[in-house]
Amino acid sequence: MEWQEVVIRLFKNKISLIGLILIIFFGVIAIGAPWIAPPSDPSEPYMVPRAGWGFEPQPPSSEHIFGTAEGQYDIFYGIIWGTRTAFRIGFIIVGISSFIGILVGTLAGYYGGWFDEVVMRITDIFMAIPFLIAAIVMTTILGQGLRNVMIALITFGWMNSARLMRSQVLSIKEEEFVIAADALGAGDFRIIFKHVILNTIFPLVIEASMRMGSMVITASTLSFLGIGAPEGYADWGQMISFARNWILGGEGNAIKYWFTVVIPGGAITLFCLSWNLIGDAFRDILDPKLQ
């Protein structure tokens, strides 16, 4: 199947269309952030402006349409600029870890032998470590900050792609067209790029789009736990962590501070959902058994 056909089918499929629209919506917000929520200090646009120093969140008003969080951080501003953070976290983590996974998986699968054994045992060791705990420990050691969160999540996030890629390569390298290229005298580099990777990449694309959402959630979790973004940084996870003390509501009103949880939570959920929808749709479109 050709790329064009895949794109056409993505648009024809209702579920993936919803996913696409959502992602485009988030993309527009991310790109338009400086206009939607103009920063007061253009040199530090990711720092969420504060409307005072009061402790208690303030409900939505005409000035702060999503209200303010604990410490009077403007939720609207945090959500808008946090979209950029979400995309950045997702693309960087998924991009680099997928790249590592593809590289490792391709080499292990293509060359096989002892190299494969060693690399895959290392992969097994990494997989045996609980992901979230490993990420927390590593971030703590490296020090707080989004960059370190990303390093930690990349370090422990490449193994699935590596395994998937390896199994793909193992099956494709027995294909006759790969053997034919070998018989023509093609070098390893040419075989890997022109014949192997081009024919194995689709499942990796599906996996990557599924991982986009989950990586953003994990990064948010770390921010929620206070080892992610620095205080005041526009990040959805942090926006939720501001709500930690207010989730149970105020006296006599359990949903008094709903906006502190629902708005950033909703943003994360929709963001994740959109990538998963696209991933699912990709899988349906590309799965040869379903055609």
Binding site: E176, F177, I179, A180, A183, G185, L198
Partner: peptide, 16 residues
């Protein structure tokens, strides 16, 4: 390899 070539059985699997 220029001197000796191969033709395969499966015309579907043998072309990228």
């Amino acid at each position: 390899r220029k001197e000796m070539q191969i033709i395969f059985q499966d015309p579907y699997a043998s072309l990228n």
